[in-house]
């Protein structure tokens, strides 16, 4: 049709390993992005001064901490959730900086468009909310409150327990991981599609008139993906907080 050569999915998300090739610790672009996603916030936090009147980087860092405190912890758990601040803050920052590399030139790849990182984070959240529930209500109490919905008839109990078990202990972490993974992969494929379209139009002289529209769309989608990168980090941390809240408060 356009002689459009869309790259195969392996070319979009699989990267060659730079170091330790072939071992369990093969270091590729995803690993590099993850290391950067760890280092950038660390450097930001270390550069922040300790003034009573915040300025510059300190302002950014404190806004992030306050955002996590007010918009995630206070909104989903309440004041007793403040002890989960380090976990939720690190999840938020790690997901956000893993995502934002989607639009940073020369990287152009969200680390969370591979299943590994979302899966690890979802498992961390899974362990945390189960641990919080067992700590708050005891093992039996937690199992009862999460598996037996109030007001279930005795005849339906086995079925309801099965459904609740699947939805609480299997679908929650799966949904968390897949939500983040699929959003970032979809955004990545969308940007790649418009990028490929722009390149193809540039080489085809009669169709070059529609190139500005295609390129404008690419720019607009880049902005949109920045918003998605932030929103997905926010939603991941917010859902983690909601799950912790559901575990520590028996319904």
């Amino acid at each position: 049709m356009f002689a459009l050569e869309f790259p195969s999915i392996d070319n979009l998300v699989k990267w060659p390993e730079y170091l330790f090739e072939g071992t369990f610790a093969g270091f590729n672009k995803i690993s590099l992005i993850l290391v950067l996603a760890m280092l950038i916030p660390t450097v930001l936090f270390l550069l922040a001064k300790r003034d009573l009147v915040p300025r510059g980087i300190q302002n950014i860092v404190e806004s992030i901490v306050e955002f996590v405190e007010n918009q995630i912890i206070m909104a989903a758990i309440g004041p007793e959730g403040m002890k989960y601040l380090p976990l939720l803050l690190s999840i938020f920052l790690f997901v956000f900086f893993g995502n934002i590399f989607e639009v940073i030139p020369t990287f152009q790849m969200p680390a969370n468009a591979r299943m590994a990182n979302p899966l690890i984070l979802a498992v961390v959240v899974w362990v945390t909310f189960i641990g919080a529930g067992i700590k708050a209500q005891g093992f039996g109490g937690f199992m009862k409150s999460s598996l037996v919905p109030p007001g279930t008839p005795a005849a339906l109990l086995p079925l309801m327990m099965l459904i609740e078990f699947i939805s609480t202990f299997l679908l929650r972490p799966f949904g968390l991981a897949v939500r983040l993974f699929a959003n970032m992969l979809a955004g990545h494929i969308l940007l790649v599609t418009f990028g490929v379209l722009c390149i193809t139009l540039w080489t085809l002289s009669p169709l070059v008139v529609v190139l500005p529209f295609s390129f404008g769309m690419l720019v607009a989608l880049t902005g949109f993906e920045m918003m998605v990168a932030f929103l997905q980090a926010f939603i991941f941390a917010l859902l983690a907080a909601v799950y912790i809240n559901l575990s520590i408060h028996a319904h």
Partner: peptide
Amino acid sequence: FLGIAFTEALAL
């Protein structure tokens, strides 16, 4: 946002 996240999961 929570509702969007749960609804969107189906599309994802």
